[in-house]
Nucleic acid binder design. Sequence first.
DNA 1: ACCTGAACACCGTTCAAGT
DNA 2: ACCTGAACACCGTTCAAGT
Lengths: 181, 181
Amino acid sequence: MPRRRIDPADLVSVAVRIVDVEGPEQLTLSNVAAELGVRPSALYTHVDGSDGLRRAVAHAARQNLARSVQASAVGVAGPNALAAIAKAYRHFAIEHPGQYRISITIGELEPSAAEDSIRSVLTAVFAAAGLNEKDAAASAATAHASLHGFISMESRGGSAPGPAGSDHFRHMVEVLGRLCR
Amino acid sequence: MPRRRIDPADLVSVAVRIVDVEGPEQLTLSNVAAELGVRPSALYTHVDGSDGLRRAVAHAARQNLARSVQASAVGVAGPNALAAIAKAYRHFAIEHPGQYRISITIGELEPSAAEDSIRSVLTAVFAAAGLNEKDAAASAATAHASLHGFISMESRGGSAPGPAGSDHFRHMVEVLGRLCR
DNA sequence: ACCTGAACACCGTTCAAGT
DNA sequence: ACCTGAACACCGTTCAAGT
């Protein structure tokens, strides 16, 4: 009986797919193991139980979001950069609802490098616009909170849907753009 | 053998207590039933299973938050009102971490009246400051998203802790205050 | 109308045994 | 070093039976 070996990268990729396609509730050791063709207990070699699996997926999701945000901001500055970042952020949440949901649901143990990365991008935008270090950091915190707040409510179905929601989103992004000066 | 009767209000109150004291993960039908002195299956008469229990608690938590926010805004106007609302919002999340966490985690089926209530309070503040209906609604959406975003990240341990975090919070509230004109 | 008690499915977790 | 297989605890859910 040849034993199936687990590729750690495969494990996370399968878990991420489950989260996005079937939702975070379906992310179980059993489901991941079944899809990998192994027994649930075999996963304990690679992740620290059910919570560890969730943390691993949340970590991967935050990295993916951070990459999208960072990529969206290359070659743009000021209010335009904020608009691009906002669009990429929102787009990620819509395209990968499961990843986004789990990324904001699961608490991080060590301060997330991915979340710092998003704040760094925002800080760089404000700094490039002429704000001093302290103001840039404060404005970045405000922008990050606003984006996260709006998009997470929308992702949960809590904000006004459709055209009204998009109007409000544009208004918010415009307000954030004003922080550049 | 006298059967214990369940007081529905008791059920929710016990569930809310569990969430705040032991955390949302400990909110199970078994735990609630044990504390009420009944069998888990008895709860199915009052809530629609495990998900129904969570929805009921999330609903109660949103009402409690909305009440605190509303109470904080009586007798104040403009930027002062926003500051009072922001303080009450943040205070609730700190005092009732479990309630706050579950209120932002569990999706609502019917658009939440409690969430609308918070937005209504914010809209009223901006309207009283002289903004027209549309701008007031948009500003309220921005303010709501910002508060929710900042405080939910803080509640998860995602934002800068301590003094730096509070500086950033004050900056954000100040920015929101500017929307009054 | 409302709760008990038994029954079943499912998941998480541990660990000795195999390779 | 890594996976299997058995074992156990625990939770959710259903339903017939009692009151």
